[in-house]
Amino acid sequence: MIVILAAVAALTAPPPGATACSGCHGAPGSALPSLRGKSEADILAAMTAFRTGARPATVMDRIAKGFSEDETRAIAAWLGSRK
């Protein structure tokens, strides 16, 4: 049973923090921007700009500051790989 589960879960296990983003970011057509179809590079660049304050925001600045560069990279890679 361990083998079967490991095979399924290895594909989908999200990095820390990544599943919390979809609380706000969902399908296109919302006032909250959808992240679907966004590339890893775009997400990483936006998160970095929010964290440093280079990009003004209502809430993303407060959220992005809670993640280290490594954590942000892992989240961007995971989100960027989803359709």
């Binding site: 361990i2 589960l5 490991a6 879960a9 296990a13 820390p16 923090g17 919390a20 983003c21 809670g66």
Partner: peptide, 23 residues
């Protein structure tokens, strides 16, 4: 995050690190 932890534990692996957001 809990689901991810439970799935890992069922595979015999430790629960992975946790980071959460609230708004």
């Amino acid at each position: 995050a809990c689901a991810t932890a439970v799935a890992a534990l069922l595979r015999g692996q430790p629960a992975p690190p946790v980071k959460l957001i609230n708004t």
